Measured scan of single mutants.
Amino acid sequence: HSHMSHTQVIELERKFSHQKYLSAPERAHLAKNLKLTETQVKIWFQNRRYKTKRKQLSSEL
């Protein structure tokens, strides 16, 4: 499990705020920019979407 830097997370968050789903080319581009693997980016987005979904569910209770 590799640790992401604060800067990388900020960039991922910024991208996520604009779009929740990335196409393969977008993911490849973002990964390259942030010096991450595409898998890391993919998993981060999956986890981030899951967290957002959970938060929405709990706020509706």
Score class of each variant (00 low, 15 high):
Met4Thr: 02
Ser5Trp: 05
Ser5Phe: 04
Ser5Lys: 03
Ser5His: 04
His6Gly: 05
His6Arg: 13
Gln8Asp: 03
Gln8Met: 04
Ile10Arg: 13
Ile10Leu: 12
Ile10Ala: 11
Glu11Gly: 07
Glu11His: 06
Leu12Trp: 02
Leu12His: 01
Arg14Val: 06
Lys15Met: 14
Lys15Arg: 14
Lys15Gln: 10
Phe16Arg: 03
Ser17Asp: 07
Ser17Arg: 14
Gln19Ser: 12
Gln19Trp: 07
Gln19Val: 06
Lys20Tyr: 05
Lys20Glu: 07
Tyr21Cys: 06
Tyr21Lys: 04
Leu22Ala: 01
Leu22Pro: 05
Ser23Asp: 03
Ala24His: 08
Pro25Phe: 13
Pro25Ile: 14
Glu26Ser: 03
Arg27Ile: 15
Arg27Lys: 04
Ala28Asn: 05
His29Cys: 13
His29Thr: 13
His29Asn: 11
Lys32Pro: 01
Lys32Tyr: 09
Asn33Lys: 12
Asn33Ala: 15
Asn33Leu: 15
Leu34Lys: 01
Leu34Met: 04
Lys35Arg: 10
Leu36Met: 07
Thr37Cys: 05
Thr37Phe: 03
Thr37Tyr: 02
Thr37Asp: 04
Glu38Asp: 09
Thr39Arg: 12
Gln40Ile: 05
Gln40Ser: 04
Val41Gly: 00
Lys42Glu: 15
Lys42Asp: 08
Lys42Trp: 09
Ile43Val: 08
Ile43Met: 11
Ile43Trp: 06
Ile43Arg: 10
Trp44Cys: 02
Trp44Phe: 04
Phe45Pro: 00
Gln46Leu: 06
Asn47Ala: 09
Asn47Arg: 15
Arg48Phe: 04
Arg48Lys: 13
Arg49Gln: 03
Arg49His: 03
Arg49Asn: 03
Tyr50Met: 14
Tyr50Lys: 15
Tyr50Trp: 12
Lys51Val: 08
Thr52Met: 14
Lys53Cys: 15
Lys53Ser: 09
Lys53Tyr: 08
Lys53Asn: 10
Lys55Trp: 06
Lys55Phe: 07
Gln56Tyr: 10
Leu57Ser: 11
Leu57Val: 14
Leu57Gly: 13
Ser58Asp: 14
Ser58His: 07
Ser58Trp: 08
Ser59Pro: 13
Ser59Lys: 13
Ser59Gly: 14
Glu60Ser: 09
Glu60Trp: 08
Glu60Phe: 07
Leu61Tyr: 07
Leu61Arg: 07
